[in-house]
């Protein structure tokens, strides 16, 4: 089995220049790997650095040191040192991301927001929109909302648009930041099913799930983040 995502000796701290330059270490020496067809879950209490790890794996946060090796096509690329252009190419083809909150763009309809990553991946716009509609229907988003910009949607509705957007592509790596946080039971089950299908398709998934029930259903491996907590300087 292949291992499309390997993280080794990853460290991250925040230096707050506006607060007198205090330095907050959040992750130290994190090492783990995610195999294809497997869902690894980052475990640990709030503030342990789970989201920071996930964001570094998407190139959204900078890392201080260490490596994040991603299989991008036939190449192995270190996200920590990759230039912006390479990271954008990796996001278009290799790494998908479902965040907790939807970043809404004024005037862009729900269906177009969902279709966007599929178009970036190379699908024709019409086909992408059709696929987007299928995803939204599956996640029980009422059809009358599809053509509306999601700015006025409820939290759960926005979250479902976000999930559809993350799951529409066939990226070999998918990062999930609490995808089921504001969903009801029926929709949570749809998401669990979708995660299962991604695994069958050979996608490597790395996620954060606070919902114990969902975590138990999807997790193949729990990565205990407290092991990567920096020793607090006295």
């Amino acid at each position: 089995m292949t291992t499309p995502l390997v993280v080794s000796e990853l460290s991250k701290s925040f230096t707050m220049h506006l607060q007198g330059g205090i330095c907050l270490p959040v992750v130290e020496n994190a090492s783990f790997a995610v195999r294809a067809g497997e869902c690894a879950v980052l475990g640990g209490p709030s503030g342990a650095g789970k989201s920071s790890i996930l964001k570094m794996a998407y190139g959204n946060y900078a890392a201080d040191s260490g490596q994040i090796i991603v299989q991008h096509g036939h190449e192995l690329i270190d996200l920590v040192t990759a230039d912006p252009r390479t990271i954008i190419a990796i996001r278009n083809r290799t790494i998908g991301y479902v965040s907790q909150f939807l970043r809404v763009v004024p005037r862009v309809s729900a269906v177009d927001i969902v279709a966007e990553p599929a178009i970036a991946e190379g699908l024709a716009p019409d086909a992408a929109r059709e696929k987007a509609s299928t995803m939204l229907a599956r996640l029980n988003l009422p059809e009358r909302l599809w053509q509306l910009p999601p700015a006025t949607f409820s939290g759960g509705e926005q979250q479902r648009v976000n999930i559809a957007r993350g799951f529409i592509t066939s990226h070999p790596i998918l990062l999930l930041d609490e995808p089921t946080a504001s969903l009801d039971r029926a929709n949570r089950e749809v998401v669990v099913e979708m995660i299962e299908e991604k695994k069958q398709a050979g996608t490597a998934l790395l996620g954060i799930f606070h919902d114990q029930e969902v975590r138990d259903m999807v997790a193949d491996d729990i990565i205990d983040v407290t092991g990567f907590a920096p020793a607090r300087a006295a």
Binding site: F14, T15, M16, H17, L18, K55, G59, N60, Y61, A62, P84, I87, I88
Partner: peptide, 18 residues
């Protein structure tokens, strides 16, 4: 300089943080 979302979400330079 760098990726737009990284600069906005994890700014490094004091001025960018400001």
């Amino acid at each position: 300089s760098g990726l737009t979302d990284r600069l906005l979400d994890d700014p490094q330079a004091p001025y960018t943080q400001l």
